[in-house]
Amino acid sequence: MTADARSPAEAEEGTADARSAAEAATDPVDAPDTRFPSEAPEMTEPALRLEGMSASYGGRPVLTGVDVEIPAGVLSAVVGPNGAGKSTMVKAALGLVPSVRGTVRWLGRPLRRVRKRVAYVPQSDAVAKDFPITAVQVVEMGRYPHRGWLRRLTAEDDECVAAAMQQVGVAELADRPIDELSGGQRQRVFLARALAQRADLIVLDEPFTAVDARTEAALLEILTGLCRDGVSVIAVHHDLRDVRDRFDHAVLMAGTVVAAGAPADVLTPEHLERAYGMAPLAAR
């Protein structure tokens, strides 16, 4: 199903009912799998596969006809100009946008089957910044998908949390309240939460916006190391030079997918002109 096949009226209708009955019955992300029955989760499965996905905000279509496959075990960037639907694509695939159509497969399966294996680091302004919570309590959230919302954390959970905080260099900040941390420290804490979850796939939405250059380099180093260990990383990012130099894979967006593949093949002048209307300086 492609977006072109539907009339605007249908798209409008989809939004209106999705808001009121957002969680009711079958949302497309959690819809039972009919097209790919009983596949074993192997490394060969792509980290994310979208087929004919479209999404809209408040009746306005943001994404149409998205078909893309992001391979597993690589550092992948989702890039594009402001309003290109980068974040929306990721959030829609994670079930965070009410009106979504199309097929979504994380690690070859519907999201609801792999929730423990997918860690999400939202954009920094999607988190309540002045909330009364300490760094270690944030990292502990990474264990909730495994432990549930009522049971106490175990010694094993505590080990995961401590190891994750050590790995990203925030162990000494454990008891600091989150609103007293710098942007870079806070982002390290959120990455530690994803590590504590021991996920096979980490999804980050604009992870480097409020972060100094040194922290960005350190975080990218950690993410690259994770990919070497077989973890898949998908990051929404806007720095094209960064993507060209440091990432293994890129998806260029402009309301739909303009190109996907190795960064050198994706960030070509023709593609960038199609996405941005003109080739940005950084890419020349």
């Binding site: 959030k91 994670l94 079930g95 965070l96 999201l111 929730r115 997918v118 999400y120 680091v121 939202p122 999607a126 988190v127 309540a128 909330f131 919570i133 944030v138 959230m141 939460r193």
Partner: peptide, 8 residues
């Protein structure tokens, strides 16, 4: 604190 993470 983090509705996105919680929903995922």
């Amino acid at each position: 604190f983090d509705p996105g993470f919680t929903a995922v």
